[in-house]
Simulated scan of single mutants.
Amino acid sequence: MKALSLIISTIVFFASGYFFVSDFNLSGELNHVIYMSLLFILMLVCVVGFLINIPLIIQERKRVKNLAYRISQAKLPKSPIQLNQQKLEVGY
């Protein structure tokens, strides 16, 4: 659920940012000022959504690093060539 919230916050942030930049002009009309302030408030809400989901991002990075470390430290089974080399060294 948190991942969905993060994805939606990202999409809405970029969409509202696009409309904020494309509709930006120096107009003194009250309707335009209200519209631009609502877009700005929506972008701030998305930033709060990012801040709420920061632990999810950090936790996911730690999980990936831990998984990569465990895979690199795992002992892989020996190949038949390595087994034959060991038998030759021992003298079987």
Rank of each mutant, 00 (worst) to 15 (best):
F50H: 03
P77Y: 10
N31L: 12
L51D: 00
L67S: 09
H32V: 03
L39K: 11
S37H: 03
M43Q: 10
L42D: 09
V64E: 09
I54F: 11
N31A: 14
Q73F: 06
Y69L: 09
I34Y: 12
M43R: 10
L56Y: 13
F40D: 00
N31P: 00
V47D: 05
N31I: 10
P55M: 02
P77A: 08
F50K: 01
V64S: 03
L38N: 06
R63H: 11
C46V: 03
L51V: 01
N66H: 13
Q73L: 12
L39Y: 05
V64H: 08
K62V: 06
S37R: 04
F50T: 01
P55T: 01
K65Q: 14
I58P: 01
I34T: 11
Q59I: 07
F40A: 14
Q73G: 07
N53Q: 07
A68I: 13
L38E: 04
R61L: 13
V33E: 04
L76T: 15
V64A: 11
K65L: 15
I58K: 15
Q59W: 15
I57A: 10
P77N: 09
P77K: 12
L67E: 09
L44C: 10
F50Q: 00
Q73C: 12
V64I: 13
H32C: 07
V33F: 06
Y35D: 03
G49R: 02
G49K: 02
F50R: 00
I34N: 10
S72K: 13
R61I: 14
L39M: 02
I57P: 01
K62T: 08
I52G: 03
K75A: 08
K65A: 15
V47N: 06
V33G: 03
K78D: 08
M43A: 02
C46I: 06
R61G: 11
P77H: 09
